[in-house]
Nucleic acid binder design. Structure first.
Lengths: 122, 122
DNA sequence: CTTGAAGTACGACGATCATCAAACTTTGAT
DNA sequence: ATCAAAGTTTGATGATCGTCGTACTTCAAG
């Protein structure tokens, strides 16, 4: 396993790639949580209802599109939203697809609406 | 065949639907041409390299997402970009995915750049 | 009324994708 | 050394999607 996975540079950002990444609700949710938190989040700390292997897949897609940056901290993989870089290349895109004025979750993560999600939780 | 196909109202616009419509390059091209032209365009007058049946499919997806409005003029089906309505619901979205500062076509629609596309041409 | 132009409807086909479980790897504690 | 936690990798599977050709419909012109 590589120490650091490959990340595209800003000059290599591709709108098609980015849109393909953002069209998936789970991935958009990841981006939204990252944006709302304003800080890096470990893969396992997201509120998404998919298996670990599926989650890995989604993070890979986001990373290869340039939307997130990933790095290891111990056994955990941290995720950073590449906000500024994305805004530089595609101004307004993230703003448009991010739940802006929507009822924001508490950063402390109150009890979720659904009953028992079998998978990853925050 | 119905005289006027079903169009979603502004209140029914759904981000997921819109993104699914915009993720396809052909459909994004249709939106871009509509935006650049600034006027309604008939289905057959677009510069897209797909068959007629495929084109019909793409227009349907765009219409059901609320991105375009369609109406008949004789045997031709005209297409209107629902710019203002989209901007109202998802501000900045179309701006972000539309070739903005790119070399804009003349609004009078000059001769297209490519040689001989086997399908629909302007 | 016949003909042609412009689309639509209908399957069908191939490719891509999201999903999962199972097995593996790596790291940090015990 | 062991063990568990956190992710990854590797197929496999089922669904969706873009694409096409063919047949059909509608409208306008001759």
């Amino acid at each position: 396993m590589e120490r650091t996975p490959p990340h595209p540079e800003v000059g290599q950002f591709d709108l098609q790639r980015v849109l393909e990444a953002l069209v998936d609700p789970v991935r958009r949710s990841i981006v939204a949580q990252l944006d709302a938190a304003g800080e890096d989040i470990a893969c396992g700390a997201f509120d998404i209802a998919v298996s670990k292997s599926t989650a890995t897949h989604h993070f890979k897609v986001l990373r290869e599109a340039g939307l997130i940056r990933q790095y290891y901290v111990g056994t955990s993989r941290m995720n950073t939203l590449r906000r500024a870089e994305m805004d530089g290349v595609f101004p307004g895109l993230l703003d448009a697809i991010t739940p802006r004025s929507a009822p924001r979750h508490r950063p402390t993560a109150a009890a979720p609406s659904r009953p028992a999600t079998p998978y990853l939780r925050l």
